[in-house]
Design a protein around this nucleic acid. Structure first.
Lengths: 131, 131
DNA sequence: CGGGATCCTTCAGGATACTG
DNA sequence: CAGTATCCTGAAGGATCCCG
């Protein structure tokens, strides 16, 4: 049978398990990148982080910290003292991650206007239940 | 009354509407960044994009395209021909966005191992309904 | 082919209460 | 102060059908 020559696209493709997809396990989380970013300014205690990210729930904070710790992005240091004291800091891997992230954040800072539009459009196009 | 000197944290804080938070309107979306990334390799037709991102639903593709278009990140070009032809390409603003994003993706490519851990941890710590 | 409109499922993530 | 355990809701996003 004639093997029909399918006109192969441009060839570019982001397969299911390519790094570009998998990194979104980090980026999709509402807090992960911001926690890392916060820590890029120096080690912080749990409470400090909580206050540095207004709106974060205790649950999400610890959950996020656990995962980045498990991923080797963050170091966790526990001091055995009366009022518990735990400090988090960026591991080398995390430092590397921050560099391009900072680039993105810089872009954001320089294009607040575009972000406005984005937000607006994101919401408009999202199903939008019209009572 | 003695104005109790609260020991002001480190001073670092990511307020509710800072750019670093707002850019996550883009990053949180499951497809947005990848669509932009795909387009950074040249203009593409709708169908091409769909195939370049296996697993994306038609709904999400158009929805995503609408929002990035509205945000001025992407240009949409319609050709008035018999079988409709629509081409998307990065707008200058989008090009700028891609640069740091590529940095992140490079990081991902160089640290697949860390991504493994991350994924695992993300899932383990997520409520985890135990039947 | 490109894309709009619905419907439905899932699960990220917030609130709250409790422990050491 | 740091952390765990539930419970519950909203909304992201997939499947499907229809249209020009």
């Amino acid at each position: 049978m004639s093997t029909t020559k399918v006109p192969r696209d441009s060839g570019f493709m982001l397969r299911e398990n390519c790094p570009q997809r998998r990194i979104h396990y980090i980026l999709n989380g509402k807090w992960t990148s911001m926690v890392l970013y916060a820590l890029s300014h120096g080690a912080m205690r749990t409470g400090q982080l909580e206050r540095a990210l207004p709106g974060i729930s205790k649950k999400m904070l610890t959950q996020t910290l656990r995962s980045v710790e498990g991923g080797g992005l963050v170091e966790r240091k526990v001091f055995n003292v009366v009022p518990p004291r735990v400090e988090y800091s960026l591991a080398p891997l995390g430092e590397k991650f921050i560099e391009p992230l900072r680039g993105l954040y810089d872009w954001a800072a320089s294009n607040a206007a575009a972000l406005d539009e984005l937000e607006r459009n994101m919401q408009e196009n999202t199903d939008s239940r019209l009572d």
